[in-house]
Design a protein around this nucleic acid. Sequence first.
DNA 1: GCGCTCAATGTAATCGATTACAAATACCAT
DNA 2: ATGGTATTTGTAATCGATTACATTGAGCGC
Lengths: 361, 361
Amino acid sequence: MSGAKMDGSLNKIGPKTNPRISDVARVAGVSTATVSRVLSNPSMVSAKTRDHVLAAVTETGYRINLAARNLRRRQSGGIVVLVPHLSNPFFSQILSGIARVASEAGLNVLVADTREPEGADRQIADYLFNNRADGLIVLDGNLPESMFQPPHNDRDMPPVIFACEWVEGHDEPAVTIDNRHGAALAVEHLIALGHRRIGHIMGPRDNILTRQRADGVRDALSAAGLEADQRWFLDGDFTLASGIAAAPHWLALDERPTAVFCSSDAMACGFMSELNRHGVQVPGDVSVVGFDDIEIAAHFIPALTTIRQPRGAIGEVAAGMLLDLMRGPDKDGKPAEGGSRTLPIELIVRNSTAAPNPSRT
Amino acid sequence: MSGAKMDGSLNKIGPKTNPRISDVARVAGVSTATVSRVLSNPSMVSAKTRDHVLAAVTETGYRINLAARNLRRRQSGGIVVLVPHLSNPFFSQILSGIARVASEAGLNVLVADTREPEGADRQIADYLFNNRADGLIVLDGNLPESMFQPPHNDRDMPPVIFACEWVEGHDEPAVTIDNRHGAALAVEHLIALGHRRIGHIMGPRDNILTRQRADGVRDALSAAGLEADQRWFLDGDFTLASGIAAAPHWLALDERPTAVFCSSDAMACGFMSELNRHGVQVPGDVSVVGFDDIEIAAHFIPALTTIRQPRGAIGEVAAGMLLDLMRGPDKDGKPAEGGSRTLPIELIVRNSTAAPNPSRT
DNA sequence: GCGCTCAATGTAATCGATTACAAATACCAT
DNA sequence: ATGGTATTTGTAATCGATTACATTGAGCGC
């Protein structure tokens, strides 16, 4: 009687605690070391034992405890992605690309919005130096330089990859596109249509992409012997709202450009939307080109001519490079590729561009 | 001389290992237990020692090792969010709301796309039962029932909150809006404008939101004594592409509705975009109402009349409820609020709706 | 059969924090 | 002074996997 009771309470009704590696080891008749090796370095174990262990794993329903592994391996098991404005649809595809390769490697992906008002800086430093991340992908080129110096003297920092944007003066590897060339492509398209007065809605003043794309605009204009009138370069910040804000400035110009190249699709949409409210037709009265090729671009009214960035690929490549860096210098001493990569872009012609209306030229 | 050298090599150039809790303890002249208490339960420690410890923390630049804490506390320090289609801009604001309250609580947020082709099911189960998450927010109501039963008998599962959508037959708490009422609001608006033939582009057939919103449409129609012609209920799946696909079906109808209520803004945009390609004017030839109020809605051409969902709030409330659940039954035995919550919605009237054109009615 | 190498496995220390329990101290009422 | 309670702090076990090192045994050349 008391024996049965003891038996029951000890073996069957035990507090349903998850199986540990030692449970698997017991079932398989091996040591915990062997189980661990089967799970993370199978080639070290003979095929026969491996099968036993695997069988024991499924029998017990064992799932590894990541906190324990991470503690022992002195890692965090995650990477963080620093995004300016999480709600910007431009980033979603990049994130999805990152997530694809990271999850393949068993890594968690943490996303932090660098423009959140709530003490963003402190929080990001937290991610950086709080053992939360084994690696970092930065999509925001306007972070303070200081953020990449550890606050306490010689603490080590996880590897960093920049993507899309980057902080100048840093030699961290980056995954980018040729922004200057992309902008030139857009403007060349407008020139080919016959436009002679071409405006440009720019990104934020202090942004690296803004400068590069504006340079591309000037390249194309001067190659065609056209003037780059400074009054036709309007301010923006990549957001839809700033495209709206640019419209009245364009409307107020003495001699309006017959075409406008916007440094982001969001601005192009905002710009066209506001022009429409004022009765200005695209492309009848003005042609508009965007940059990015976000999903809505193809379905805006009119469908937006734009420069396509391979956003999924950017994310995948960035994550892949980060993984290389995290694995550290290869066994052969090969320093794990320090280089940056530039991915190809493409001009997508849709309905927002046309030859200039002769009556208004 | 040699003393100076020893000093230097021993103290300064030591292998730059991060400080541990014991280093802080030594500097502060207390035990590790006390340091730990200052960090996670300050009220247990006298003010004087607390100050000493805090000073030692900043002096050493100590940062807690989360893997160690998580291991000891038997938690993972994160929550996962299950999203259908990460790239859908509808979700970004919800995620941002979730992230806001989660990061306040020091929790990582992991996002998984349930519609990724790559063995999504296995991966999600991994998140669920692999000690990766202390809690779960599900934004996808079409997950297989089985996903919420642990595969191995009595393993315990983290608490779950549904948001927006939910799986029927489950009694997990949910954060939702009144979809039926929202749809009714939209249709009532159209009726008030004078429309008598009103169509509806629906979400996926097996989706709970689809059914509720379709019911709302019928409510409003029958309250006005109007017919709910089944041929005017067109299929869709919430995506922009499906809105495009619905357009030819609407065009092919014998007696076209003069107004269409779309069950998502994305579909409304796609629908309008495709109508535009066919020379159909909105709202001149047909009025369109959306649902969600995503960012582009206000700036589409024409600006879209829609039902606004408080997306940030949905995320925040869901995360808050999840935190309550994770903290478990309160000390007083109060079972941590099992209830669901319904957040308010709002009709936003813009330019995509107008009175029906008399010449076509 | 001897000694050697190599492969497969086991033993036990370790990662760094948390917390049950114990010990010390202070304060108070009797 | 004595015992009792409340507060503060310390000691040491513990969370669950990984891995350096030790051990065993098989295979092989002579």
